[in-house]
Structures are given as structure tokens and as C-alpha cells.
């Protein structure tokens, strides 16, 4: 069956001279990828699922004991864990909402004939291309209470952005917004330029004002692609680790992934952290599913 869709091997080729068939070559290309996926993705996934039902600790030689759903029961009843979830939710909402507002706004500004549009777009995309760790370290310097440029520019004196327990999470979210708004901008720009010009002319003829045109024409037509940007950014924000880990170590900035890291590699509760990772996985899949359902509904129109 697979042979029928494959391109036949050129009988004069070197491969044919060595006696290789189409099938051999196909397998040569595919087997390394499959092996890689199985060894590094699928096997650990299943293995950690097994661990999540045990009290295994990777730091000791004690044999793992099967304890059923106890890890899950403990985690879901742990109020500190729920605090981590609340912090993460707050972070995701602020960060993604900020990125959508800033990114879409930039896209609206760029979606017209302006001089040096290409250059401006490229420059705006730069933050996205930096490494998370580098961005975190730089913004730590920018936020610095004594010599940081942000306090200097805003005239805030010695305001402690990252040491202030109420502010730290938002400071990290601002950095994330700075870094990832260009991503939303890029997708929005693609969506905006795909709206046919003649629809705006029709709206103008139909006497629609700028706001009415935006909410009734522009936004609905860009929504499908904007939703894709939001799905990506939500998933990414949900599993943020490096940025928050580098920038602050407040209890108020302890995102799920940081809690998970501590549980697994500082406390060495391997079994319990496997269960935790599975809970997070289920949540991310569930949230993504809600978005995808909505996206499909939007796309139907």
C-alpha cells in the first residue's frame, strides 16, 4: 500500500546499483526519527506514568513501592500546590492578555503603508529571537532598584520590582509581554493583511464608523489566526520556568513548573513529582482543547 504512493527509485541511481529498494531507503530515513521519539519522548512519558503510582526517590537506592493513587490524592489536597496553580493562572492571564493587546496593537499600526515597514517589523521581532535566560538576566538589570534604567526613567526611586512580593510576578509578566508580543504581532499582521481591502471599502460605503468596522469586520476575520497565537502563548506561559526562575525567587512567583522542579530535583520526590507533572499535562491539554473547540467554531463562519 505504501509502495504505491512512493516515487519509484531511478534504476540508474547509485542506490539502485547497491541493490537498495525504495522501501530500504524509506526505512533509512524514518527509523532514526521513530527510534528517537520512542527513546526520548514516549518511553519517559510511560515510565514516569509508572513512577507516579510509586514512592520512588531517584536519590536513594531504596526500591520503589507501589502506593496507588496516594501521590495524586496528596497533591490535589495540598493547599500550597493550589497556591502555585493560582499564581500560574494569574501569570498566564496577565501575560497572554498583555501580549495580545500589545501585539495586536502593533500589528494594527503596521498594517498600513508606512516607510521602512520591513525594517521596523524586523526590529520589532528581535526580542522573540533572544534566549529566555539572556532576556531574564537583562531585565533583572533593567529592574535593578539602585541602577536600573526603569526606575530611573519612570522616576520611581528605589522601587523594588523583583523583591516586592506583590509586584514580582507582574514584573516577570511584563518581561514576557516584551519578549512575546512580537509573536502575536506577527500572526496578527498575517491575519490583518489577509482581510480583503474591498471589505473595508464596502464598510465605508455602508457608513460604518471606525470602531464598528473594527469590531464587526476586522476582529471577526482576524480571530481564527489570533486564536492560534493565543493557544501557543497560553501553553508556553503555562509552562514558563526559566524567566521566573532567573528573575525572582519569591514565594509569590513560584509557578507550577518551579514547584515541580523543586519537588523533583531539590526534594527528590521522584514519584510524587511524576504525578504532579501528569496533573499539569492534563490541565494543559484540557485548556488547549477548550481553545481548539472555540477556534473550530470561529473557523466555521
Amino acid at each position: 500500500m505504501t509502495d504505491s504512493v512512493m516515487t519509484r527509485l531511478d534504476p540508474n541511481s547509485r542506490a539502485a546499483a547497491r541493490g537498495w529498494s525504495d522501501l530500504t531507503i524509506r526505512n533509512l530515513f524514518i527509523i532514526p526519527t521513530i527510534a528517537f521519539l520512542i527513546i526520548f519522548n514516549i518511553f519517559p512519558l510511560l515510565y514516569s506514568l509508572g513512577y507516579s503510582f510509586t514512592d520512588f526517590r531517584a536519590s536513594t537506592n531504596a526500591p520503589a513501592k507501589f502506593i496507588g493513587l496516594q501521590n495524586y490524592r496528596e497533591l490535589l489536597n495540598d493547599e500550597f500546590i493550589w497556591r502555585n496553580f493560582t499564581i500560574t493562572a494569574k501569570y498566564v492571564i496577565v501575560s497572554v492578555a498583555g501580549q495580545v493587546i500589545v501585539g495586536f496593537g502593533l500589528a494594527m499600526l503596521l498594517n498600513r503603508d508606512i516607510p521602512m515597514k520591513g525594517l521596523i517589523t524586523t526590529l520589532l521581532l528581535l526580542p522573540m529571537m533572544l534566549s529566555m535566560a539572556v532576556v531574564g538576566l537583562f531585565w533583572k538589570l533593567l529592574y535593578d532598584p539602585s541602577f536600573g534604567i526603569i526606575n530611573y526613567a519612570l522616576g520611581l526611586g528605589k522601587f523594588e520590582w523583583l523583591a516586592d512580593p506583590d509586584m514580582a510576578l507582574y514584573a516577570i509578566a511584563i518581561t514576557d509581554i516584551w519578549m512575546w508580543s512580537p509573536f502575536v504581532m506577527l500572526l496578527s499582521l498575517a491575519g490583518l493583511s489577509a482581510v480583503p481591502k474591498h471589505l473595508y471599502e464596502a464598510a465605508e460605503i455602508d457608513r460604518a464608523g471606525p470602531f464598528y468596522t473594527f469590531f464587526r469586520i476586522t476582529l471577526p476575520l482576524v480571530l481564527p489566526i489570533l486564536m492560534i497565537a493565543i493557544i501557543f502563548r497560553t501553553m508556553e506561559a503555562f509552562k514558563t520556568f526559566d524567566l521566573a526562575y532567573i528573575m525572582a525567587s519569591q514565594p509569590t512567583t513560584e509557578l507550577i513548573s518551579i514547584r515541580l522542579y523543586k519537588m523533583a530535583f531539590l526534594e527528590w520526590q521522584t514519584g510524587k513529582s511524576s504525578a504532579f507533572a501528569y496533573i499539569v499535562l492534563v490541565m494543559v491539554v484540557a485548556i488547549t482543547n477548550i481553545y481548539v473547540k472555540y477556534l473550530n467554531k470561529v473557523k466555521e463562519r
Binding site: 480583503p196 474591498h198 464596502a202 464598510a203 460605503i205 464587526r216 469586520i217
Partner: peptide, 24 residues
Amino acid sequence: FVFQSFSLYPHMTVYENIAFPLRA
């Protein structure tokens, strides 16, 4: 104005398309 390419709003029903200039 009636456009050669019709320029109907693709995400609205026929009813909403015709009602658009009145709603606006």
C-alpha cells in the same frame, strides 16, 4: 455601491449582510 467582487462580509449571514448598513 455594488462591487464587481460583491464584497459580501464572509463571516455574516445574508440577513446580517443586508442589515449591516442599517445597524451601522
